[in-house]
Amino acid sequence: MIDKSAERISGPDGADLRVVSTSRTQAISGQTGASCRDVEIAALENGVVPSRYLRNQSTYDCSDQIRFLRSRVAIVGLGGLGGAVAEILARAGVGALTLVDGDRFEEHNLNRQLFCTQDNLGSTKASAAETRVAAINSAVETRVVPTFLSAENAFQVIAGHDVVVDCLDNIPSRFVAEDAARQAGIPLVSAAIGGLTGQVTVIYPQDGGLEWIYGPRDSARQAQGAEHLLGCPPQTVVLVAAMQCGEVLSILCHRTSQLLRNKLWIVDLSDHTVEVLALAG
């Protein structure tokens, strides 16, 4: 069925490429009862590229794209970072996204939170994320968890994913996410911003992790981040979220030699500084 639906086009290197449109994968899904995700995977296994991923192909080939579609990623926190991360991972074709946030949109979110609009103030961030992801990519399956991550629910929420993305907005909650990711044996991609400065790191269960950044967890529990003074402007949030997604996608397609493990990527937009610093001193 996919073979019949495929069209031939000329690929970036001039060679013939077979592609299939989203409307065709949706139609096949409707006729066969298979999910759009499974239809896209079957197409890719037969060398047919869903047209929506054409501009990703030179960076992520069919086998990478299949890995993305078969992956499960939990995004914890759906504010500035989390909204941008959900948008990017949905467009990349990560097949299953768990969207975790107990908060609702307020007017002071409009400056940076991509899913917050003048019309949806008051609605839950998790449901807005679900709506947006569904509008972007019907191959992405979402699970909505409209509650705040806590020590009580964290393991249950996080277990079973390939990667957890820490998009939280306070330091103590980040330790809760890290503990659960360690317990579940999965990597955590953590990011934070304050003003024009942002940071990203990747933490596998055996790594030093957040204590290397925020200090011993008992003192970190009371720590107030620089964002309380400097706020969270949109350009820092979206830039840092994009870097976070780069790390998530590298993990998912097994390009693990250059990850930000035991390193901190720092960006400062006030003077264009970008640095990678070693955490394992």
């Binding site: 998009c167 330091i171 970190a220 720590a223 981040g225 620089a226 640095e275 610093l277 001193g281």
Partner: peptide
């Protein structure tokens, strides 16, 4: 990354960050 108590000789590049938690 080094401790706050690390002593310096001169010639080093020293970067100091506050905790960042925003998103």
């Amino acid at each position: 990354r080094k401790e706050l108590e690390t002593s310096l000789k001169g010639g080093e590049r020293v970067a100091i960050f506050p905790p960042l938690g925003g998103g």
